[in-house]
Design a protein around this nucleic acid. Structure first.
Length: 463
RNA sequence: CGGGGUGUAGCUCAGCUUGGUAGAGCGCCUGCUUUGGGAGCAGGAAGUCGUAGGUUCAAAUCCUGCCACCCCGACCA
């Protein structure tokens, strides 16, 4: 993308509305634009990041046998009445009526909808375990939207739902999704901790949150080095005394009562729930098992806040006026900067821009007639993993300059002739590192869960 | 929903106390000079002062209602 004509409205100053780092960076970097409280437009850069994160999620979910679907955003309110969630969840729902004055709401989550879907469309227990997911905008009339994409009233979420024959099968899938989630976040360059959580209005027996430790986090995480428990403070039903902002301070563990508790703030980027049969019962979602008996489907649900992941990455990898994206989710691989305005520089930069793209490298080419300082400051904000400068000074020696993202990375020179292969190679290496760390293979859910290939039906029956 | 705060140009703000009909910096447009970390000079475009009403000869300024946004609490991906 050529910067001159791109919609990237960077700003020199922090917008007043933003308090936390990720929000400031997103606004200053021209990634998002606020329309109303908790409602944002995604500008080209922000949209690209959300797409990249979504792509990682899709790869991993598909890789473990998940099937992507698109569930309706427009939902009959009646569904929520049947599941009994209008009560607690009610105020969070955006409601509306159709022309016949029938009550509808916008999808805040899809347990009800997907339970109905499976009730009608599941043909045989042989299809189980089944995992469907979608990546879609969710609507919640939050009491207090804040911090940009961290808590919006309209936000992009990946929600997944598994259906099993029994609790045991659900536990297996649950554990596998948990492992998949850890891979997803690792590929996004995030350090996460998994904590026990409160399942809240969602219902069900057990739930875990994926928390990114960060000052800007809205949750407080408790970790006990003695008993090993890691929980969200809200689970304990009591406040652990002391100052959250003093990480080193150790207090008594509410579980094992040893003074070995550390606490930190966290951003909840994912949450998984073992739901039992709550929604299946409400929807009448049953299946005939191997003995011909009607049994309710056992359900679990799995969420990831896509925008929140982006915000969390920025909290972890950003600084004032500066971002550094991991290649996997960066808006562009390379920021290409034309230094100076001579014909020779322009020609060389133009050529490099075209050649790199031909090699599959995603390039943000700053071709604006701006001064260098302006281009560098903006490049700092956008935070591409690699920065390439083409300038008169280098061209005289037949080289361009290459720099890794990040604050104090050193600069190296690369001969112009080998620049394309060198840069493309560097991008591939950075990507490969992640792929190798997270090696995986595609297989069906059933065969994995049962530890054998093929005859999943028979195996379920023998259980 | 309770408590606090803010609404004036695309952005950050001054002007309001003491009413007299709107300003600065940044950004944007034109020209010249600059050009290796947010340039200089000259010229220019841009605002129903959140909104509705009231007081007044006269309201950005005083009064009342409403709305929006931000911050602190409950909520969540």
């Amino acid at each position: 993308m050529r910067w001159l004509q791109a919609l990237i409205p960077t700003t020199k100053e922090d917008p007043v509305q933003a308090q936390v780092l990720s929000h400031k960076l997103m606004l200053r970097g021209g990634m998002i634009h606020q329309l109303a409280s908790g409602v944002y437009s995604g500008l080209p850069l922000g949209t690209r990041v959300l797409h990249k994160i979504s792509a990682v999620i899709r790869e991993e979910m598909d890789g473990m046998g998940g099937q992507e679907v698109i569930l309706p955003i427009l939902q009959p309110l009646q569904l929520w009445q049947q599941s009994g969630r209008v009560g607690q969840y009610g105020p969070l729902l955006f409601r509306m009526q159709d022309r016949k004055e029938a009550a509808f709401c916008l999808g805040a989550t899809h347990e009800e909808v997907v339970a109905c879907l499976l009730r009608d469309c599941l043909r045989s227990y042989r299809q189980l375990p089944l995992l469907v997911y979608q990546i879609q905008t969710k609507f919640r009339d939050e009491i207090r939207p804040r911090f940009g994409l961290m808590r919006g009233r309209e936000f992009l979420m990946k929600d997944g739902y598994s259906f099993c024959l029994d609790p045991q099968q659900t536990r297996e899938i649950y554990q596998r999704v948990r492992a998949t989630y850890e891979r997803i976040f690792a590929r996004c360059g995030l350090k996460v901790v998994v904590v026990e959580a409160d399942s809240g209005d969602m219902g069900g027996s057990s739930s875990h949150e994926f928390q990114v430790p960060a000052q800007a986090g809205e949750d407080v995480l408790i970790h006990c080095t003695a008993c090993g428990c890691a929980v969200n403070q809200e689970v304990l039903g009591e406040l652990v005394p002391g100052d959250v902002n003093q990480q080193q301070q150790q207090t008594e563990c509410p579980r094992c009562h040893q003074a070995a508790v550390t606490r930190q703030r966290g951003i909840e980027v994912g949450h998984i729930f073992d739901l039992g049969t709550k929604y299946s019962d409400a929807a009448g979602a049953v299946v005939q098992d191997g003995q011909g008996k009607q049994v309710p489907l056992h359900m679990a649900s799995y969420g990831i806040g896509v925008g929140r992941v982006a915000a969390a990455i920025m909290e972890q990898n950003g600084a004032e006026g500066r971002m550094h994206w991991p290649v996997s989710v960066a808006p562009f691989h390379v920021a290409l900067i034309a230094v100076g305005h001579t014909d020779r520089v322009r020609q060389a930069a133009d050529d490099l821009y075209v050649a790199l793209q031909r090699e599959g490298v995603q390039v943000l080419y700053d071709d604006r007639p701006e001064r260098l300082g302006v281009k560098f400051k903006d490049a700092d904000l956008v935070g591409c993993p690699l920065r390439v400068c083409v300038g008169e000074r280098g061209l005289q020696q037949g080289v361009i300059e290459l720099q890794e993202g990040g604050e104090d990375s050193s600069q190296e020179t690369v001969p112009l002739q080998s620049a394309v292969t060198h840069i493309a190679g560097r991008v591939r290496t950075k990507q490969a590192k992640r792929v190798l760390t997270h090696f995986r293979f595609v297989h069906s859910l059933g065969s994995f869960a049962l530890g054998i290939g093929g005859k999943s039906g028979a195996a379920v029956q023998s259980r």
